[in-house]
């Protein structure tokens, strides 16, 4: 059971890499059209220290952005979940805000806080990822069946007791669902800023330098490194979900 859970995904990755390599080989594509996995190994060998430093930059900014998104998203979701008026007031604003393509916000933020690269990057990661969290928490709270509330309210429980004992735990499965979406969104935000910023750092900047220097295998190597970080962070969220909302999983 345990070994199956590890071996099956690893085998899938191996098959994917083999197909990729075969595709490039059969089509006879040069590496500036499409790099193959075997082109990536020299890129990692050459720049491994840069990958570590830049990868860390990207990772910590994404995590800080995410943490902020969780705090703000949950707070906003609570406000909208408990108050009908606030929900009516904030929803159109929030939807409009979310509809704006974040790629267009990036240059504006980059100019607004020019020179504050860490701040800019964290800000974009945050802006892009709080929306699903706020929506899921607000829906989770507003769809709480009235009987759940009545069970505690009839005993004289306070609003905050209802929140901590029932509303919050009941919303956790939706929250973690949203967090999984937010993780990938936050990575997009971080990288957009790293690529666009003139003196950026992080994997996005490494990608940009690959473009400038026509080092195409490096660009592909960055994409794979980003995918790897995304997978790691995603599974961290899955592990947290198992701990805090494992009860919601009925498949076992």
């Amino acid at each position: 059971m345990k070994s199956r859970q590890i071996l099956v995904p690893l085998a899938a990755v191996a098959i994917f890499l083999i197909l990729w390599e075969a595709l490039v080989l059969v089509m006879g594509w040069p590496n500036y059209k499409m790099a193959s996995p075997s082109d990536l190994i020299p890129a990692y060998e050459k720049y491994w220290s840069l990958f570590l430093v830049m990868g860390w930059q990207t990772l910590w900014r994404t995590i800080v952005g995410l943490v902020l998104a969780v705090i703000f998203g949950v707070a906003l979701g609570m406000v909208m979940g408990f108050s009908r008026t606030m929900r009516d007031a904030l929803y159109p604003l929030l939807v409009g805000f979310n509809a704006v393509p974040k790629a267009t916000v990036v240059p504006i933020v980059a100019l607004m806080f020019v020179g504050w690269h860490d701040f800019n990057t964290v800000l974009i990661a945050f802006i892009i990822s709080f929306f699903p969290i706020a929506v899921s928490v607000s829906i989770g709270l507003s769809t709480l069946e009235p009987e759940y509330r009545d069970i505690l309210r009839s005993l004289g429980a306070s609003q905050s007791q209802v929140f901590w004992k029932i509303a919050l735990p009941k919303t956790l499965p939706e929250f973690f669902g949203a967090l999984k979406v937010a993780v990938t969104l936050a990575f997009i935000g971080t990288n957009l800023m790293e690529i666009v910023s003139p003196h950026g750092r992080g994997l996005g900047a490494l990608f940009d330098s690959g473009k400038t220097n026509s080092d195409y295998p490096l660009m592909f190597a960055v994409l794979i490194a980003l995918a790897f970080l995304g997978i790691v962070l995603y599974y961290v969220v899955v592990a947290l979900e198992k701990i805090f909302a494992g009860w919601a999983d009925r498949t076992v």
């Binding site: 759940y148 009545d150 009941k170 909302a245 009860w247």
Partner: peptide
Amino acid sequence: NVGMAFQNPVLLEW
């Protein structure tokens, strides 16, 4: 000093 039970048992799944 009130106890309530409804048609929906509303037990907490966690």
